[in-house]
Design a protein around this nucleic acid. Structure first.
Length: 476
RNA sequence: GCUCCCAUCGUCUAGAGGCCUAGGACACCUCCCUUUCACGGAGGCGACGGGGAUUCGAAUUCCCCUGGGAGUACCA
């Protein structure tokens, strides 16, 4: 078999959507698994809606996800250019070929006429199919129309028949082409329509497998027809279910983050995102869900991908993100976290101390953005009780006094020493009938304003003697 | 309206006629661990949308219904 070649073909009319990212991922996984090539093509024929900013975002996001392409606009390749806007001059040749072979014909209908036809079929409860009234225009009629100043579009002639293809994820799909109607392949302004451009591009780029969202299913028969008319074998198709919002509607801005870059801004880790999105429709053969992209690629089977839609729920993503946060190397994690600490005076601490702060506060994190609130007491000058329970806890003056006295002898460079010091305190109060928990709560509340949080010995060590004494006194 | 796709716990899914008393993960609940929260560990709750048909036997095959999704452009 020839080399397997897949592609992702986003249009730069928005930031890289998480759904597009998943499609890209599945293409990438398929390429990796089969030793094929992964190509990136930018579909920017709609000049009005496309812009460079989005293109950059798509590049950056794809790179960040680790979905590196073998061929694309920036890296080039043997079948370029890889931006459709730079390929405008190649479509007319193929259009001409179809016109000459009789597979296509010129259509002079105006948008108004077309709209009228559409209304009529709606009223008759029929599918909207072009009437074909321009199909049999003779040369004189065409010349007359041209003289009126009308510029023709090119329509592809669709004859009635049954068209079948075997979808890699859905199985056999059947269509009655009489319900499709003759569709436009070249607009009157000489720009190809999507269905024509993709076929020409995929053909020229030697794409062998097209994995895309199921919103393209109805385009597939049209495209297969064009392949046939061009005398080329159509590639294999695989249509993925859609990713839906929890309300089962299309995932859109009102549901929150939609672009990969939005998720990153909210504090999601790229490997977690990749892992999570891979599990939407695909499941590992060994049941182990936490897997990196290489492990997933090694186990990837396109035929086993689920054919139904899946709902994007944050619960599992959050859990998974937390798993990655816990496992991540502390230096790298600190680098990622620093931007989320904006507004705090980070110079208060050394890099080592900062890393220690991250290390002791990362445990309950689900999203990086939560770190700011969880570490506030490290950066505030004065802490105040954040809850009634914390306010109550610092009323325990006896404990606070003892802690203040005791800490003079603690070695603040040793968390272990502090830990032992606290144990001594607990022991002392235990004899007076005060519960260990209350002792710890009083100290924690005085130092952090809360009754829960990171390991208190570590907090004390990081805060330092001066600060600890000040906060205890302040609480007293 | 027309066409197509889909249908297992709340969610992501395992399941390709008997291995299913339907398995796992997230969420939720309980308990354990623990100086707190959390992490971790042990349990629990919880599903084959409905109806027919085929079969000795159906979550698995077929049909109908219902529900959800998509497409229906000289957008991509």
């Amino acid at each position: 078999m020839d080399e397997i070649r897949v592609r992702i073909a986003p249009s730069p009319s928005g930031n890289l959507h998480i759904g597009t990212a998943r499609t890209a991922l599945f293409n990438y996984l398929f390429a990796k698994k089969t030793g094929g090539k992964f190509v990136l093509r930018i579909e920017d024929t709609d000049l009005d809606r496309s812009c460079d900013e989005f293109k950059e975002n798509i590049f950056d996001s794809l790179h960040a996800l680790g979905l590196n392409w073998d061929e694309g606009p920036d890296v080039g390749g043997p079948y370029g250019p890889y931006c459709q806007s730079e390929r405008f001059d190649i479509y007319p040749d193929y259009a001409k070929k179809l016109l000459e072979s009789g597979a296509a014909y010129e259509c002079f209908c105006t948008p108004e006429e077309l709209e009228e036809e559409k209304q009529r079929s709606m009223e008759n409860k029929q599918a909207n199919i072009y009437s074909r009234k321009c199909c049999n225009l003779n040369e004189e009629e065409k010349a007359a129309l041209r003289a009126e100043g009308r510029k023709p579009a090119l329509r592809f002639k669709v004859d009635a028949r049954e068209l079948k293809f075997n979808d890699m994820v859905k199985g056999e799909l059947k269509f009655d082409t009489s319900l499709i109607g003759d569709f436009v392949i070249m607009k009157s302004n000489n720009v190809p329509t999507y269905n024509f451009a993709v076929v020409v591009d995929d053909m020229l780029m030697k794409i062998t497998h097209i994995i895309r969202g199921e919103d393209h299913i109805s385009n597939t028969p049209k495209q297969i027809l064009i392949y046939e008319a061009l005398g080329v074998a159509a590639p294999e198709f695989g249509h993925l279910g859609m990713i839906l919002a929890p309300d089962r509607s299309k995932l859109s801005k009102r549901h929150g983050a939609t672009a990969v870059s939005d998720f990153v801004k909210e504090g999601y880790l790229i490997p977690a995102l990749v892992n999570f999105v891979a599990l939407l429709g695909w499941s590992p053969s060994d049941g182990v869900e936490i897997k990196n992209i290489d492990e997933i690629a090694a186990d990837f089977r396109i035929n086993d991908v689920s054919s139904s839609n899946s709902i994007f729920e944050y619960d599992k993503l959050n859990w998974m993100n937390g798993q990655y946060i816990k496992k991540m190397e502390i230096g790298a994690l600190t680098d990622l976290i620093i931007p989320f600490l904006e507004g705090y005076d980070l110079k208060r601490y050394s890099r080592a101390q900062l890393e220690r702060i991250v290390e002791v506060t990362r445990e309950p994190l689900t999203v990086l953005s939560e770190i700011k609130k969880d570490t506030s007491y490290f950066f505030e000058d004065n802490v105040t009780p954040e809850s009634d329970e914390a306010a109550g806890a610092i009323q325990n003056k006896e404990v606070l006094n003892s802690a203040l006295e005791a800490c003079i002898n603690w070695d603040f460079n040793s968390e272990e020493n502090i830990h032992d010091g606290l144990a001594v305190l607990r022991e002392k109060f235990k004899e007076q009938g005060v519960k260990a928990k209350d002792v710890m709560w009083a100290i924690r509340a005085a130092l952090t304003g809360r009754i829960k949080g990171a390991d208190i010995s570590a907090v004390i060590a990081i805060l330092g003697k001066e600060c600890v004494e000040a906060r205890l006194k302040n609480a007293l």
